[in-house]
Design a protein around this nucleic acid. Structure first.
Lengths: 136, 136
DNA sequence: CTCCCTGCAAAACCTTTGCAATGGA
DNA sequence: TCCATTGCAAAGGTTTTGCAGGGAG
């Protein structure tokens, strides 16, 4: 994925730089994170301003997208750089787990089509109480 | 709905005040809005700080919830105070339209159940290009 | 009559921007 | 070399907090 990412930048006439690689690698290791977590982790080696600029750029290029999970605004790599999935978030312990579901996907296609939309992407977030917390 | 809202507050031992009513009524009239829009509209009659406190309170009480639509973080009344629905957002013109779908809902239940989650709520956002913009 | 809430003002955060220096291609 | 990109510093927004006065129950 790292190579694809670098190619993607160069193909868009952009440069592969330290802050960009830094942020991308952090996102690869951390599905569903926050901007402040990125700053917290990469902040030593890259300036806050560069991190914001990088995140803005990644959004424009479709490398990442925003999600609301557990009520918080978060970011994650988009489908081209991570396998397509959604989240189940536990309202009690805050943990999120990934889910994939074929049937669901085809329903979303059907809905978009019925409404005359050419679908580009979608996001789903299911909130509830996880098995573990139901026992506890 | 307005009565239900007032009852909800009083039942929780909270007071029905001008800023709270103000914000609630604005949300009733504006599905899918932003905090700054609320401030922009209610700002004359309620202090920013009270608006933030009210929104925080509404979130805790489950009166509203957050959504990402068209890449922006937004708020809207939750199911108990508005009919359950999701959004189709156009990436070109930015407009959002509401969608309801039975099949989709039952799929989400199935997924939650399969993962041992007791589902509380879910959010879906489909992004694409609307019929109008496809022609334009 | 009580305290829960509000408004105000200030603090704390978060995000963006301008500009000179730096380093990829 | 050349220009995109960075770091720094400062500005611009947004959200939170402390406190005294005011209003709902």
């Amino acid at each position: 994925m790292r190579d694809k990412f670098k190619r993607h930048l160069r193909d868009s006439g952009l440069k592969v730089t330290a802050p960009r690689t830094e942020v991308f690698e952090f996102l690869e290791k951390n599905d569903l994170t926050t901007i402040s977590a990125v700053i917290g982790h990469c902040g030593g080696r890259a300036d806050r301003a560069s991190i914001y600029r990088t995140i803005g750029l990644f959004r424009e290029l479709g490398i990442i997208h925003d999600v609301v999970a557990g009520g918080k605004r978060m970011i994650e790599l988009s489908d081209r750089f991570a396998s397509h999935h959604h989240h189940l978030s536990c309202l009690r312990c805050g943990k999120s787990e990934a889910v994939s579901d074929r049937v669901l996907e085809s329903d979303l296609d059907r809905i978009a089509q019925k409404n005359g939309f050419r679908q580009v992407s979608h996001q789903i977030e299911i909130s509830g109480i996880c098995a573990r917390c139901q026992r506890g």
